[in-house]
Design a binder for these strands. Structure first.
Length: 411
RNA sequence: GCCGGGGUAGGGUAGCGGUUAUCCUGUAGCCCUGUGGAGGCUACGAUUCGAGUUCGAUUCUCGAUCCCGGCCCCA
């Protein structure tokens, strides 16, 4: 009986892992240059953390379990809630704004499809403590910068939910939420029916329908035409002006809603091509969650990047790290070990572990793509040197170890 | 939870009621004990699982499972 990996999980082979780590490294470098610090939260949390944030309904999509102390636990399905919990538990006295990032695996019990797995990786950023548009603009600019750094062309859509919420403020809170969800799903028929059902004022319905279809350069002006002067529209304009200064390209889209109640102002989504139905590689915005977890009224802005989807469309060439291969004879194996010790202070080195004969060792070096081999036989040991062979040109020269190191590290 | 398409050595495949289950590639070894890439030879290695139909199932039927894509959902 062969044991296979659980559904929706993946094994990453050496070549996959090399590329993932390489791309991860680039993303890390970018966020660090923007002054964000990495944090790590537990792989599992109390179930309540997520039901509090997203409702009881999420349990259906969670990998939850009861532990041996009868505690309801779950593998984390996302990291915003854990980070906010961490902030409330132990970081409230930190200097603000707090600029945090994470790169961790998350778990959701869902049907796998293209770009969707049961174990997946999120690279996310949370900026805690500023309600200014400056914070939102920096976070959005960072997201686009990260994608650019790994060579992905994303289509950024931005909205400010304050505008639509302002329009809806005369309605009951519950109805507002329902409308936001319908807008998020772009279910305009359902939206129409619902507005009919709750007997929404005719001019509100008219304005809402017009507003959510606004996209593109003149969308702000049109929004003003429809709704008049609003502080929320001014905020939105301020954000866009800063995005221009950052050199970020965006599409204004009053139809982006992000479904959930705790998104209050700026929201954004980034889509990439080549991903099928799951084409969103990044989503985020400003939100109010900290009070929900027992903290103060502290605003935050953040986003999550779908790392697996990024890998799916990322075409970066990963530099490979092919080792130098030492070729030894039976009688010089110990000398080979000693030479390897020296060389490994500077570069990756393979030594024969298969007791292959001379020719087979060379052949193996060729098969794994070695650019250089170092031959250590009786003659070389006798001369106190090693033979460096260039596997591309075929040339070889007799050198002492230090000369080899100099030669190979200066390339 | 729902819908569609698939599962034959590690990877890629042929066979479509009876074969010793085909070929390519791979891995290890030999030809060849101090010089790789080519070639030859040898070895290793597969019908996803379970039930049914049949004298006989890799092949047909049903169920499960996993993979791929889509719906729902998407924090």
């Amino acid at each position: 009986m062969k044991i296979t990996k659980p559904r929706g999980t993946r094994d990453f082979l050496p070549e996959d892992t090399r590329k993932r780590r390489y791309v991860e490294g680039i993303l890390r470098q970018v966020v660090k240059n923007w002054g964000f610090s990495e944090i790590i939260t537990p792989t599992f949390e109390n179930l309540e953390l997520f039901t509090l944030k997203s409702g009881e309904g999420v349990i259906g999509e969670l990998y939850n379990f009861t532990d041996k102390g009868d505690r309801e636990m779950t593998l984390r399905p996302e990291l915003t809630a854990p980070v906010m919990r961490m902030y409330v538990n132990e970081m409230q006295a930190y200097q603000q704004p707090l600029k945090l990032f994470y790169f961790e695996n998350c778990f959701r019990y869902e049907r796998p499809q293209k770009g969707r797995f049961r174990e997946f990786w999120q690279f996310g950023v949370e900026l805690i403590g500023s309600k200014r548009m400056d914070a939102d603009a920096e976070v959005i600019a960072l997201a686009t910068e990260m994608l650019k750094a790994v060579g992905i062309k994303g289509d950024l859509n931005v909205n400010n939910l304050g505008v639509i919420r302002h329009l809806l403020s005369v309605l009951e809170t519950e109805n507002q939420s329902k409308i936001m969800r319908l807008v998020d799903k772009k279910d305009y028929e359902g939206l129409d029916n619902f507005l009919e059902e709750i007997n929404a004022p005719a001019d509100l319905r008219q304005k809402l329908i017009e507003l959510i279809s606004l996209t593109g350069n003149d969308a702000i002006a049109k929004a003003r035409d429809i709704l008049g002067e609003l502080p929320e529209i001014d905020d939105f304009q301020e954000l866009l002006t800063m995005l221009d200064a950052y050199g970020v390209e965006y599409t204004i889209n009053f139809g982006i809603a992000r479904g959930l109640d705790y998104y209050t102002g700026t929201v954004f989504e980034i889509y990439a091509e080549g991903l099928g139905a799951q084409n969103q590689v990044c989503g985020g915005g400003s939100y109010q969650l900290i009070q929900l977890f027992g903290g103060g009224d502290v605003p935050s802005t953040g986003f999550g990047l779908g790392f697996d989807r990024i890998m799916e469309v990322c075409e970066l060439e990963t530099p490979d790290d092919v080792p130098v291969v030492i070729i030894a004879k039976d009688s010089t194996r110990l000398d080979a070990i000693k030479a390897a010790n020296e060389l490994r202070k500077h570069m990756p080195v393979y030594n024969d572990l298969m007791k292959r004969n001379f020719k087979a060792q060379l052949s193996h070096a060729n098969n794994i793509g070695a650019k250089h081999v170092i031959i250590i036989g009786e003659k070389e040991v006798e001369a106190g040197k090693v033979m460096l062979k260039d596997m591309v040109s075929g040339e070889q020269e007799l050198l002492v170890i230090d000369e080899v190191i100099t030669k190979l590290t200066n390339k």
